[in-house]
Amino acid sequence: MTAGPSGGVTSWLVFDYGQVISLPQPPDTMAAMAAIAAVPPTTFTDGYWRHRLAYDAGCPAEQYWSQVVGRPLSAADPLVAELDLADIASWSHLNPRTVALIDDLAHDGHGLALLSNAPASLAATIDAADWAAVLHHRLFSCRLGLTKPDPAIFAELLRQLGAPATEVTFVDDRPENCQAATDAGLTALLYPQVPTPSRR
């Protein structure tokens, strides 16, 4: 297992998804989705990120995409499904280094979990992925109604793991999320700093 802040052992390793397990979105992502929506790329990009946290917290897809494109869309509008599929695809390029690490950690018997800000459509895709089967817990902001770095999401993580904070190591690419985890008593590693599997 990995060493905790005082040299002890942590029994859970918890990974973020975006830009940790997945690679960053391809550079042409926003332009491609903006073209689908017939919206200027700068307008689309601004709306995409401005409203993203609410989407990750469980906002319905049609509401989110309506805000992004600047016009009302119904749940049945084909554009909602098309943008959702393009969005999922943009976050589905896996980081082979991290996936291999997770496989190694699973082989070594570590407790593994995922804690990610993600909308419902992406969460469902991750749940169905073969690589995710080794994760004992998969916690998503859309299902919790909480987003990182809210301290409450780390309290809920610990509740679901059934573990004290001193037995949990958390890996994320955002400093503010790592700081919130540290404030909650977890050991936090800023990606690409990652735990190393033990070798028997």
Score class of each variant (00 low, 15 high):
Ala120Asp: 15
Glu176Ile: 12
His107Met: 08
Ala3His: 13
Thr42Ile: 03
Ala3Tyr: 09
Tyr17Arg: 03
Tyr64Gly: 07
Ser121Gly: 15
Pro40Lys: 12
Gly111Ser: 11
Ala61Asn: 12
His110Asn: 15
Ser66Glu: 08
Ala75Thr: 08
Leu122Thr: 06
Gln179Pro: 02
Arg138His: 02
Glu82Leu: 14
Asp77Ser: 07
Ala123His: 10
Ala128Arg: 11
Ala163Gly: 06
Ala89Thr: 13
Ser11Pro: 02
Glu82Met: 13
Trp65Phe: 15
Ala3Asn: 07
Gln160Ser: 03
Thr147Met: 09
Val168Tyr: 02
Leu94Arg: 11
Arg52Thr: 10
Ala165Asn: 02
Pro96Ile: 10
Ala31Phe: 02
Ala155Met: 00
Gly4Gln: 12
Ser11Asp: 14
Ala106Thr: 15
Thr182Asn: 11
Glu82Val: 07
Gly18Leu: 06
His51Ile: 15
Ala31Gln: 12
Asn177Trp: 01
Gly8Phe: 05
Val194Asp: 01
Ala129Ile: 13
His107Asp: 14
Ala123Cys: 09
Leu73Trp: 02
Val69Arg: 00
Leu23Gly: 06
Ala124Cys: 13
Trp131Glu: 02
Gln63Trp: 04
Ala31Asn: 06
Asn95Met: 02
Pro151His: 07
Pro5Asn: 09
Ala54Leu: 15
Val68Cys: 01
Thr187Ile: 07
Arg200Tyr: 05
Leu144Tyr: 00
Pro5Trp: 11
Ala120Leu: 15
Trp131Cys: 01
Asp16Lys: 04
Ala75Gln: 11
Pro78Lys: 02
Ser121Thr: 08
Tyr64Arg: 05
Val194Arg: 11
Thr42Gln: 14
Pro41Trp: 05
Phe15Ala: 02
Leu190Ile: 09
Asn177Arg: 00
Thr187Ala: 06
Val171Pro: 01
Trp91Gln: 08
Leu83Lys: 04
Cys142Trp: 04
Thr43Leu: 08
Asp28Trp: 12
Leu83His: 03
Val194Tyr: 02
Ala81Ile: 05
Val168Trp: 01
Ile153Met: 03
Ser141Ile: 09
Leu122Ser: 08
Val99Pro: 08
Pro60Tyr: 10
Asn95Ile: 02
Glu62Asn: 12
Asp56Glu: 15
Val171Leu: 13
Val171Ala: 04
Ala61Glu: 14
Leu158Phe: 14
Gln160Glu: 10
Gln63Leu: 10
Thr42Val: 04
Met1Leu: 10
Cys142Asn: 14
Gly7Cys: 05
Asp104Ala: 15
Ala37Gly: 04
Gly162His: 10
Asp127Phe: 01
Ser22His: 06
Leu94Ile: 14
Phe44Arg: 11
Ala81Ser: 15
Thr182Cys: 11
Ser121Gln: 11
Val171Thr: 10
Arg50Glu: 09
Thr196Arg: 07
Cys59Ile: 04
His93Leu: 12
Leu94Gln: 05
Thr166Ala: 15
His137Thr: 09
Leu144Lys: 00
Leu161Thr: 03
Leu94Pro: 01
Ala129Cys: 08
Ala3Cys: 10
Ala81Gly: 14
Val39Trp: 06
Leu139Val: 09
Glu82Gln: 14
Ile88Leu: 05
Asn117Leu: 10
Asp16Asn: 04
Thr45Met: 09
Asp16Val: 15
Ala152Asp: 13
Val20Glu: 00
Thr187Tyr: 04
Asp130Gly: 11
Arg200Gln: 09
Ala132Val: 05
Ala165Cys: 06
His136Ser: 14
Ala155Val: 13
Pro27Asn: 10
Leu139Thr: 03
Cys59Asp: 05
Val194Gly: 00
Asp56Lys: 04
Ala81His: 09
